[in-house]
């Protein structure tokens, strides 16, 4: 009976399961470097026989607290990072190797590798960080800029009109 359970355990290890990997990439890699780092993470998954199901957008977020990590043999403190996540199918026996590779990754502040399930993986596209630092803020400010310019133009025009009125009234006197 015990042997049967053991066999069952072994086959369970060979049955693919859904896992979720979320990660924080160091902010110093920049917008261009992030895509490269995400590709390297995806490669770790696929090299270990993983099959990505859903992939979340990578976003620069402000962390809720400062994280102190050793990157390139030096302690570094980060208060923001690129957050992203994958859900993927993989056999449980590959998880340990994957974990070791992720631990050695140079550009990661932290990562979380947890069991998930297919329904959860598909039905949760929502990442709603309250402290997201995105380009939206920049976009908003750039959108604001033309309106303020327009305001300045209007002001200039009004000033010109006032000056012109004053000049004409002075000439009449």
């Amino acid at each position: 009976m015990a042997q049967k359970t053991l066999e069952q355990d072994v086959t369970d290890l060979r049955e693919p399961r859904v896992y979720e990997l979320s990660y924080l990439i160091i902010p110093t890699v920049g917008e261009e470097g992030v895509a490269e780092q995400v590709d390297s993470l995806r490669k770790i998954i696929t090299d270990n026989g993983g099959l990505p199901i859903v992939e979340g957008d990578v976003e620069l977020i402000e962390l809720a607290y400062e994280m102190r990590v050793v990157i390139e043999n030096a302690w570094k403190v980060y208060d923001r990072g690129y957050f992203g996540w994958f859900t993927f199918d993989v056999t449980p026996d590959k998880i340990e190797a994957m974990h070791a590779l992720l631990k050695d990754h140079d550009a990661l502040i932290r990562f979380l590798l947890i069991k998930s399930d297919r329904d959860a993986a598909v039905a949760r596209p929502r990442f709603t960080p309250s402290q997201k630092v995105t380009a939206e803020a920049v976009e908003v400010s750039s959108e604001d800029a033309p309106t303020t310019d327009a305001g300045d133009d209007e002001l200039d025009q009004q000033i010109d009109e006032l000056v012109a009125d004053q000049e004409t009234s002075e000439n009449n006197e």
Binding site: D117, A120, A123, R124, R126, T128
Partner: peptide, 14 residues
Amino acid sequence: IKNIDYKDVVTLRK
């Protein structure tokens, strides 16, 4: 909501 998502910070904050 069947699966409580750790990424759904707005809900968790409640």
